[in-house]
Design a protein around this nucleic acid. Sequence first.
DNA 1: AGCATTTACCTTGAACAACGAGGTATTAGC
DNA 2: GCTAATACCTCGTTGTTCAAGGTAAATGCT
Lengths: 112, 112
Amino acid sequence: MTRTNPPFMTGVPELLLLRLLSQEEMYGYELVRKIQLVTGEAIKLGEGVIYPSLYALEKAGALKAKRKKVGARERVYYSLTRKGRTRLQKLEADWVRIRDAVNLAGEVNAVS
Amino acid sequence: MTRTNPPFMTGVPELLLLRLLSQEEMYGYELVRKIQLVTGEAIKLGEGVIYPSLYALEKAGALKAKRKKVGARERVYYSLTRKGRTRLQKLEADWVRIRDAVNLAGEVNAVS
DNA sequence: AGCATTTACCTTGAACAACGAGGTATTAGC
DNA sequence: GCTAATACCTCGTTGTTCAAGGTAAATGCT
C-alpha cells in the first residue's frame, strides 16, 4: 500500500475527468493513460479510481455512457451532459479558489 | 451537514498549520482565526479540524506543545520540530507538484 | 449584579474519496 | 503458443475532513 500520489488529491480525479471529457468522448482505460500524459507523469490515477469515479459521475447525471463494439471487444465511451458542464465550471472555480488561497497564505507567511 | 469548503482540501490543513507554525508558535484557537485571515476568508477550518490535526502532528513528532498560563486560562502553544520542518518542505513540494500538474492539464486541455 | 458573547480547550461520529490489489476476458506481437 | 497490452470491473482499507456537540473562563454590555 505505497502511495503513488501525494496529498491534495481530493476532487482532482473528478476535475481531470470532467475536463478531458468536455473535449471529446473517451473510455476508461484511455483516460487512465491520458491523465498521465497531460499531467506530465505527475499524477497517475489507477483504474480503481477512474472507473468508480466515472460511475458516480454518470449516476449523478454529469456523464452519459455510450457502448461501442470494436471487434469483439467493447468500449464504454463517456461524454459530458449539460449538467456535467455546469459541474465542471463549479469545480474549476473551487479549484482556483483553493489554489489561490493556499498560494496567498504562503506568500503572506513568507514575507511577514 | 452543509460543506463550507469545496473539494481539494486534502492535505491543506496540515500544510497551512505547518507553514504558520514555522514562523512563530501559536495556539489552536489562534490558528483557526489566522487561517481565515491569511487565506482571505477563502478557507475556514473549524476547531474540529485544527485540534485533531495538531494532536496528530504532535504525535508524529512534527510539533511540540508548550502550555502557558494566561491568568487562570491555559493556552497550548505549538511550534515546529526539526522533523516538522522536513515534513513542511516535503508537503510544499507535493503541493507544487499537484498544483502545477492540474494547471498544466488545464492548459493542454484548453489548447488542444 | 446579571447576561451574552467571546475565548479556549476538547471529542465524537459520519461521510466520503482515493487507492492498491485483485479478478476476468480479448487482442496483438513475437 | 506465450507474453504483454488492452479493457472492463469490484472490494476493502485507510485516512481525512467536518459539523455538531460539550466544558469553562474571561470579557463586555446594560
